[in-house]
Amino acid sequence: MPADAWRQWAAFAALFNPTTDPSPLGTFRSSPGAFAPFVDAEKFAAAARAFQSGQDAQTAAAAFSDFLRDQLGGVLDGLWGGPAFDGSAATGEEAPALGPNREQQERLQRATAAWRRLYQAQRRLQRLCSDALSEAARAFVSRQGVPAAPPTAEGLHGLYDAWIDCAEEAYARVAHGEAFGVALADALKAASEWRGECAASIEQWAKWLDWPMRSEINSLSLRVRALEEQQRERSRERETPARPVAKKAKKRTSAAKKPRGRTKR
């Protein structure tokens, strides 16, 4: 086993890190995010080394706690669709829509409002996750203490696994909560509404340019489905013996006459 486990981790992570990669892995530079976990592993190893470098326990724990919050926060950004965008209310969002372009203006206003709601929901999710990460970092530090021995490769793996356990436990507590579910649902709804308004705008352009519209294709699809159903119905009728159908029809006719007779009485 190598003497300096951190160097081993760092060397491996450097292979994937676009900022340190000298040349042979150029193709991966264009998608550094795909290898973020390895870069994170490198950062974790560095933080772990600092954690175990002999400073006083409280300082080490606080530094490590800060590191964990930063580190895990990045993971969640990726899951919620990238870093948060500016969700401040756009100028003119409340302006009354007048004149021949009023429909387009209202659509744009609705899209902007949906965008802002998406941003707000994402911020709520991030705040909840940040709370979870604080809890995870506290739990991690209290469980680990500050070890005296320098880290081995296995020791680093052990620390890393413990960190993940703490993070998942804290995240699960938050994710099962009402606030998280509501924020997630709000984010999905706002994203869907924004997407719908964008689609409607493009649909308007398609109509103007006399291109095929989604609504036309939907109508055709539904018509094809109706025709397929008719065909299936006819196939079923062909497979059904004719005689029982005739009998049933006769019965229905006679049954239908009876109530009329009663009504007359």
């Binding site: 290898f35 899951l79 993940i164």
Partner: peptide, 15 residues
């Protein structure tokens, strides 16, 4: 559902 295990730990486990 399990973001840290499913998008981080499994890659680091390769090491």
């Amino acid at each position: 559902l399990m973001p840290f295990r499913l998008s981080q730990q499994k890659y680091v486990d390769l090491l």
